[in-house]
Computed example of a mutant assay.
Amino acid sequence: MPRLFTGLELPEAVAAKIALARGGLFGARWLDPADYHITLRFVGDVELQTARDIAEALSEIRRPPASVGFVGLSSFGGDKPRAIVAKVRGDATLIDLQAEQERRLRRIGVVPETRKFTPHVTLARLRGVRPHAVAGYLASRGALEVEAFVAGRFVLYSARAGSGGGPYVVEAAYPLG
Rank of each mutant, 00 (worst) to 15 (best):
R41S: 10
R127P: 08
G24P: 13
P65N: 08
R107M: 12
D79N: 13
L138N: 00
L31I: 05
A143H: 01
L156M: 05
P65I: 02
I38S: 05
T114E: 09
R52C: 14
Y174H: 08
A28Y: 07
A66K: 00
G44M: 00
D91S: 11
L97K: 11
I54H: 02
G162H: 13
S67C: 04
L144D: 11
L58C: 06
Y168V: 09
R107T: 09
A34E: 15
D35T: 12
L105F: 13
P2T: 03
D79P: 13
E47P: 01
H132T: 12
E113I: 10
L176N: 09
Q101E: 12
S59A: 14
R153E: 12
A19Y: 02
E100G: 06
Y36L: 00
A51P: 02
T6G: 06
D53A: 11
S140D: 15
L10S: 14
S59I: 14
F76R: 00
F26W: 09
V71A: 09
Y168K: 00
V155E: 01
A92N: 02
E102N: 05
D45K: 10
R62Q: 13
G24Y: 02
H37N: 11
L176G: 06
L94R: 10
G142H: 10
F70T: 07
P131K: 07
A15H: 08
S59G: 14
A28P: 15
L58M: 04
L105G: 12
A51K: 04
A15G: 10
F149C: 05
L48A: 15
Y36W: 01
K116N: 11
T122C: 00
S163E: 07
A28H: 13
F149S: 08
S74C: 00
W30P: 08
E56W: 14
L4W: 07
P131E: 13
F70I: 08
I54W: 04
S67W: 06
P112Y: 05
A151W: 06
L123H: 05
L94I: 12
K80E: 09
F5R: 07
F42T: 09
Y157M: 15
E60S: 11
L97W: 13
R3K: 03
V68G: 07
A83V: 09
L123E: 01
I61L: 07
H120P: 00
L126P: 15
K17D: 15
L31Q: 08
R107C: 06
R29N: 15
L126W: 07
G164H: 12
R3V: 02
K80H: 13
G44E: 00
S75D: 05
K17Q: 14
L40H: 05
